[in-house]
Design a protein around this nucleic acid. Sequence first.
DNA 1: CATCAGGGCCCTG
DNA 2: CAGGGCCCTGAT
Length: 325
Amino acid sequence: MSVEPASLAVRQHIDLLPTSPFHFEGTVHKPSHFPSSDNAYESACYWFSLRLADATYGVKLTNLGTIDAPRLRLDVFSASEVSAAQLASIRSEIEYRFDLNANLAGFYQDCGQGALLKPVLERWRGARVSNGNSLYEFLVITTVLQNATVRRSVQMMETLFQAYGSQVAFDGKTLSAFWSPRAIDETSEEALRALKLGYRAKTLKRQARAMAAGDIDESALRTLPTDALKARLLALYGIGPASVWYLLFEVFKRYDVFEYISPWEQKIYSRLLFDEELVDANRILREVDARWGQWKMLAAHYLFEDLFWQRKTRSIPWLEALIRL
DNA sequence: CATCAGGGCCCTG
DNA sequence: CAGGGCCCTGAT
């Protein structure tokens, strides 16, 4: 349990040049994600805490460019001086997590003309698959998502931050930061249960154990072909078809993975693709494959996020009913 | 007040 | 491979 926020007062910055086109807002802020105190977003800035190689940093990304001439400022805030090597590894990690070096030209070419996707791609051209979290952190996220409504997931996540995470202050923001898997490895399942995490306590323990034992090399997993990667992820305790689907796409940027659809998303895609309340899951999966092939999850992601952006400016009654805060 | 499903997964039979 | 059990919550 942290007391005072750690002040990250040392600041360094470098410029990043994402591939073009690049959509800053559509990349750093995903309105369909549940809110979490480890990040903050305002028009041209995105702040988040980053835990890397046992150190905690504050990161600020600032948009300095345009869609066709992208340029980002990466500010790294730390408690003590960051070496050039550390800065380089932070940079490459961020490039991976935000997919800054992606080449989506083939996607726009293959999928840009369909009536459904065309206006969405025009609005969000250059948006990337992004997720600021490490594999371990995302395992925790999928665990608190399971069998829970959004409100409860948020509650559990914040409870975990309070009990095992820390607070960092930088650039006028105070954000939560993730813990080391060791922290959960060393705590008891009973202590986790006392936080009202229920049966998830066991899952969190098993996942932290695997990470702390060094069984999982995230950078090695990134290089695996999707089938092999999927098998490795499914072997992790607590990871089933729903969670692995999130992981393959959001963490590992596999644009073609869409073989599972949860009941909640089934209802949303039924509306988006068929303008019906509920369409058979297999029919949805066949449809996205036929429409978008190797880009099917990326295309679906664009549609999905566009819908949640629309929700910010106008009420979408059928969607509100599904979100169930 | 009681009951039940929720953005699943594991384990058993 | 189908189905029960699991933690807690808010909705009904």
